[in-house]
Nucleic acid binder design. Sequence first.
DNA 1: ATCCTTGGTTACGTTGAGGTATCTGATATC
DNA 2: GATATCAGATACCTCAACGTAACCAAGGAT
Lengths: 131, 131
Amino acid sequence: MNQVPDVLNPACDSRTVLRHLTDRWAPLIVLALVPNALRFGELRARIGTITPKVLTETLRSMERDGLVVRTVTPSSPPRVDYELSELGRTLTTPVETLREWAESNVEAVLANRARYDCGHAATRGRTLLRT
Amino acid sequence: MNQVPDVLNPACDSRTVLRHLTDRWAPLIVLALVPNALRFGELRARIGTITPKVLTETLRSMERDGLVVRTVTPSSPPRVDYELSELGRTLTTPVETLREWAESNVEAVLANRARYDCGHAATRGRTLLRT
DNA sequence: ATCCTTGGTTACGTTGAGGTATCTGATATC
DNA sequence: GATATCAGATACCTCAACGTAACCAAGGAT
């Protein structure tokens, strides 16, 4: 359909894929699954603040996209493992790159915010550049 | 405060930074500004579907984080240019990496979705594995 | 005079992602 | 029996993000 996918083209499906990758929890799930497969409960604990409902939803949609493989072991208490698919594993680099940026630039960003908030309490509203 | 920033730690600020990077429009704005600075209207046209309100909001918060520099030229019709800051430019690689993933895997993802939707229309609801 | 343009602002309405709370089904253990 | 475990399901609610529509100020062009 589209000759060359282009995220900057609003009609291109790649934009929805990008959006999906940048869902609130998807990057964290990918990061959590990079080292090894995890069970539902482990994944939940690893991420810390996600609710079971949202975790299920996000995992389902990632499974649908073929990023994650869900394996059910029908034992006495059921056991369900989630792991990155082959395609999902190719996300490792992009997501890790993002993670590294975030982690190594938190301080800078927080400092910028503080400076901005401070400076704009004074110059209130109008963009200076007088004359 | 935090010794080692870790996105997988719910309390770590790096998580909010990551979340901010994955705002709906932020990645697209970064991508649009990589080649060169753009005026408000150009940026809007480049992205295609963003409303002025949301564009303003997103640009303001990116300016606050020190990712984008806003330059006002008080001419007759006002002129405002937006460009990536030095810090913002360091986002080029992470975001481009994500973009490339999205663009080169759209087809695969769409195919996976189709297969999933098809296979699960039949097996409806219950996880098979009968007996 | 009036219109056009640029880069917004403001007030308002909507929606869907995400959260909360409670429940289930199958075993297994106490 | 009673209770715990695991992996969710379900109903319901909230809120912040996002969208829509209208408006504005200043100067230049017509």
